[in-house]
Computed example of a mutant assay.
Amino acid sequence: MSNIKTLASCIFCKIVKGEIPSFKLMETDSILAFMDIGPIARGHCLVIPKYHAEKLADLPEDQMADILPALAKIAKAAGNEDYNILQNNGRPAHQQVDHVHFHYIPKPSADDKEGLGVGWPAQNLSMDEIKKIYEEVKGKLE
């Protein structure tokens, strides 16, 4: 793991290094998947890159290859018909640990008693406003 950047005070980096025990589900050279110890549903787990990056945009592309395949394998193994994959960036977006991580959260029923309860406060933007935002983002992607 010498080529993997870590941060000494990061709880997830400590889990990666084996300094903090975890219920490890799977591991590759670039990711670690383990059970969430503060689950909001039975089977709630995390997939994290071993490389320490605070936000998704900070994570090098070569460290992303195993993330979605790991989440898909976990979803298939867990056998939940309905589930959420969640990734937050920054405190206002509800990120609690400053290390990129993806939640696999089973949603066993339509009520909000178990699993992720999500509101979708759609903004009332005009097509002109959407087009303007599109042009700004698209221009920066090129």
Rank of each mutant, 00 (worst) to 15 (best):
D98A: 07
G38L: 12
D62N: 13
A33F: 12
K76I: 03
G90C: 04
A110G: 07
Q95F: 00
Q96G: 04
D62H: 11
I67Q: 02
Q123M: 06
D36L: 08
L116G: 05
M35R: 06
Q87H: 08
I20N: 07
G38V: 06
P39Y: 11
P49H: 10
D36C: 07
F34A: 07
Y104E: 06
D62I: 00
A77M: 09
G119D: 10
A33R: 11
P21T: 15
K24M: 09
A75E: 12
P106Y: 12
S109I: 03
D36R: 09
H44T: 10
K14P: 11
G90I: 01
E54I: 12
V97K: 01
D128G: 04
E81H: 14
H103I: 04
P106Q: 11
Q63D: 02
Q123F: 05
L125D: 04
Y134G: 01
Y51C: 02
F23S: 14
Y134T: 03
Y51E: 12
D36Y: 10
Y134I: 02
R42T: 10
S126W: 05
M64T: 09
T28Q: 15
G79T: 11
Q63K: 10
C13M: 11
P69F: 00
P39H: 10
A33Q: 13
S126A: 04
S9N: 15
N89R: 09
I48M: 05
E129F: 03
Q96I: 05
G38D: 14
K24A: 06
F12L: 11
P108E: 05
E61C: 00
Y134R: 06
N84D: 09
I74E: 09
R42C: 04
Y51G: 00
H94N: 06
G79K: 15
Y51I: 00
K138Q: 14
I67T: 01
P39I: 08
K140T: 01
P69K: 00
P69W: 01
M64W: 00
P69M: 00
I31E: 12
A41F: 13
A53T: 02
L68T: 08
S9P: 07
V97G: 01
